[in-house]
Nucleic acid binder design. Structure first.
Length: 287
DNA sequence: AAGAGGCCCTGATAGC
DNA sequence: TGCTATCAGGGCCTCT
């Protein structure tokens, strides 16, 4: 599912809902996520207060009382749902909640608050939860990641210097979180289209002007995607189960064989596999 | 060091 | 209808 804009959409609604709220209980249905949930997962969360929900790159950061953190990564198919608590059915002794959007399967974790609960759903289980005990460990956790595309650190000097003499193609660098952290397969293709740069170009061959275009266009498209509620291809839903709207703005992603949207261009969008991932581009506009 | 490729997992969809 | 193959927005690991 989620690249930076989608994670940011989740962060905003989650933060609004759980900020300053105390965790009452935790239910774990399946520990086998990308990384196995630690045995003390529930007790770590229980009785703690949520200070706020932050984000770095594609990671949600839950700030907990006592200076601890919980990182959440949604992987490819993770979603977080907020549902109202329902009373326990005394006859069957089961709790239930009604939400038309809550999937029936793969609801692995529930974090329960006073009147509602958040439910982590993830069919492919590429996502994970991870506890961080303090600031120092948090810094260390993100040390190997590059700057966020939206940050001031993602600037001309940084990009030009990083890509200098690199032989790998530029598309795969945009997906490389050590270079820039938060862009995924959709926004990599879209950024290169806006920048009129062919995804197969060797990163080291980019001019300073082209680097600038990539920086500006990645920021532009990510901000725009956030303002539209993110992109929904198949899995992405916000915390109330609604889809984002940015997929309507795709210029190249999933548009193979369709007409290029640049004014005056009569070419058709191509799809090629690069580094095991689909890449969409116009080989007439992108040189 | 840098780059290529495999793998974790389930579900939707296409093709026969 | 039902089988099989292919593909999916991520990131870690290993090998060269």
């Amino acid at each position: 599912m989620p690249e930076l804009p989608e994670v940011e959409i989740v962060r905003q609604s989650l933060n609004k809902k759980i900020k300053q709220k105390q965790v009452k209980n935790v239910i774990i249905r399946n520990r086998n996520l990308r990384f196995k949930l630690p045995i003390n997962f529930a007790s770590f969360f229980k009785k703690k207060k949520i200070i706020k929900v932050g984000r770095f790159s594609k990671y949600l950061i839950i700030y907990l009382s006592e200076g601890n953190y919980c990182l959440i990564h949604l992987g490819m198919s993770g979603t977080i749902h907020i549902v109202k608590n329902k009373k326990i059915n005394k006859i069957t002794n089961t709790s239930f909640y009604h939400s038309p959007f809550l999937p029936k399967k793969h609801n692995h974790i529930e974090i329960i608050f006073d009147t509602f609960r958040i439910i982590y759903n993830d069919p492919r289980r590429f996502g994970f939860f991870e506890f961080i005990k303090d600031d120092k460990q948090l810094k260390k956790r993100f040390k190997h990641l590059g700057p966020e595309p939206l940050s001031l650190k993602f600037n001309t000097a940084y990009v030009c210097n990083f890509l200098k003499n690199k032989k790998k193609n530029i598309k795969n660098f945009l997906l490389d979180q050590k270079f820039v952290s938060g862009i995924g397969n959709i926004y990599a293709s879209e950024t290169l289209f806006l920048s009129k740069i062919n995804p197969f170009r060797k990163a080291g061959s980019l001019t300073k002007e082209e680097c600038k275009k990539i920086i500006l266009n990645s920021k532009k498209i990510l901000f725009k995607a956030i303002s539209k509620g993110g992109s929904s291809i198949r899995d992405f839903k916000d915390t109330s189960g609604s889809r984002g709207g940015f997929q309507k703005n795709f210029k190249v992603y999933q548009r193979e064989g369709k007409k290029c949207k640049s004014s005056g261009c009569t070419n058709f969008i191509k799809k090629k596999i690069m580094g095991n991932r689909s890449t969409f581009f116009c080989d007439s506009c992108q040189k």
